[in-house]
């Protein structure tokens, strides 16, 4: 769902970084932390207040993998596909999530609850394979545990 953007909030973010275009990336990170994605009105505001070309905003917002121009789900599932996780079955884990959720990688479920993504190493290699759901790290996941992980989050209070 597209978020309703509070431009005052965007202005505060800009102010907190001294309205310096060098901090475009941290500003976008703060905005994304707020809305789970980068809403266009917020990006337009950045362009306007920082007095930089919109192409620069567009370049940065589409280059870095953490930024999304589309709204994400309430729970963001990150399947680690680092080397250690890959060898210990991460591709099977990702397949299981796709099958159970009925979405592709980078897709969001229709109810807006889950977004599935992969990440190139969470640095928790000794716990491989690893899955992160929002801030929770799940170590030594196996494909049969995938369903349980999804159910646990789906059962949480909305």
């Amino acid at each position: 769902m597209q978020a309703k953007v509070n431009l005052k909030l965007v202005d505060e973010v800009i102010k907190s970084w001294g309205a310096d275009p060098a901090f475009l990336i941290p500003m976008m990170q703060d905005i994304q932390a707020q809305y789970n994605y980068l809403p266009r009105p917020a990006l337009n505001r950045l362009q306007e207040k920082l007095n930089i070309p919109l192409t620069r905003v567009s370049e940065v917002a589409t280059f870095y993998k953490t930024f999304s121009l589309k709204p994400k789900g309430k729970y963001i599932i990150q399947v680690c596909t680092g080397t250690a996780c890959h060898l210990r079955g991460a591709p099977r884990i990702a397949d299981s999530f796709m099958r159970e959720l009925g979405i592709e990688v980078n897709g969001t479920t229709k109810n807006g609850l889950f977004t599935l993504s992969t990440v190139n190493c969470l640095g928790a290699c000794a716990l491989a394979p690893v899955v992160k759901v929002n801030e929770d790290v799940h170590g030594q996941v196996s494909s049969d545990k995938v369903k349980k992980i999804i159910e646990a989050y789906a059962a949480r209070k909305k």
Partner: peptide, 9 residues
């Protein structure tokens, strides 16, 4: 004018 740029990677 910087009307053109790159997108994505």
């Amino acid at each position: 004018v910087e009307a053109l740029g790159f997108r994505m990677r």
